[in-house]
Simulated scan of single mutants.
Amino acid sequence: MAKTKPGKKDLDSYAIKGTNKVVRAGDCVLMRPSDSDKPPYVARVEKIEADHRNNVKVRVRWYYRPEESIGGRRQFHGAKELFLSDHYDVQSAHTIEGKCIVHTFKNYTKLENVGAEDYFCRFEYKAATGGFTPDRVAVYCKCEMPYNPDDLMVQCEGRKDCCNGRFISEINISFN
């Protein structure tokens, strides 16, 4: 674990106020936005520390929603899709509303029931440049669109034929 500044101490966990949930480094959390009309922000907790007055801060790595990225939301993005960014920040632990789970794309597609706290991530995102890792995505259909887990892949929109999930090729997902 990284060294803590003088007057600060590392904490192993933080109890979310008003709940019985405990957050630890590595957990994904929902954070209260300043605009109450917006959905909560999603972040991964990297570190928890308290100052000499016991004010608890969390160092987080932000997830971006597709519409928050350069290029915006595309047809193949799922409603619960997030991008793990290279954007780190320090926030008051009091802004944590709850915990959530950010699954891999593969694990998310295997869920029998997707709950309100379930999200998925298949890309890392460089906030300053708008670049993605990986920068290509598999295409499983003749319409050459990547798989959106919210859409039942039986046949393409406007088509009577489909490959029924067979890998066809890859496309570049550059949004620039």
Rank of each mutant, 00 (worst) to 15 (best):
Arg44Thr: 10
Lys80Tyr: 06
Lys21Cys: 07
Arg44Cys: 05
Ala79Met: 04
Ala138Trp: 03
Asn55Trp: 10
Thr109Glu: 09
Arg73Cys: 15
Lys47His: 15
Val45Arg: 14
Ile171His: 13
Lys9Thr: 13
Ile48Trp: 07
Thr4Glu: 09
Glu49Asp: 10
Tyr140Lys: 09
Lys9Ile: 07
Asn176Met: 07
Met1Pro: 14
Cys156Gln: 03
Lys5Glu: 12
Pro39His: 09
Val60Arg: 09
Val23Leu: 11
Asp12Lys: 11
Cys141Ile: 10
Arg32Gly: 02
Ser85Gln: 04
Val56Arg: 13
Tyr125Ile: 06
Ile96Met: 14
Phe123Cys: 00
Thr19Val: 09
Val90Trp: 08
Lys99His: 02
Glu112Met: 00
Leu111Gln: 10
Ser85Arg: 02
Glu97Asp: 13
Asn54Ala: 01
Ala2Gln: 10
Lys21Met: 14
Arg73Asn: 15
Pro66Trp: 01
Cys141Thr: 15
Lys8Phe: 02
Val29His: 08
Phe132Ala: 01
Asn20Phe: 03
Ala128Asn: 14
Glu157Gly: 08
Lys9Trp: 06
Arg44Asp: 05
Gly130Trp: 04
Thr104Asp: 03
Arg59Ser: 15
Pro134Ala: 07
Phe132Val: 00
Ile48Pro: 12
Lys80Arg: 13
Gly72Cys: 03
Val60Pro: 02
Tyr119His: 14
Glu157Phe: 03
Lys47Thr: 12
Cys100Glu: 06
Val42Gln: 02
Asp150Thr: 04
Ile70Tyr: 09
Ala2His: 08
Lys47Trp: 08
Lys38Ser: 13
Cys162Gln: 12
Phe123Gly: 00
Val23Glu: 05
Trp62Tyr: 11
Ala138Glu: 07
Val137Ile: 13
Ala25Val: 01
Pro40Lys: 08
Lys21Arg: 14
Arg159Asn: 04
Gly71Leu: 02
Asp151Thr: 14
Tyr119Met: 03
Lys47Asp: 12
Phe83Ser: 00
Val29Thr: 13
Phe167Thr: 07
Gly7Thr: 05
Arg136Phe: 09
Leu111Glu: 06
Asn54Gln: 03
Leu152Lys: 15
Leu111Arg: 09
Met1Ile: 11
Met31Tyr: 05
Arg122Val: 01
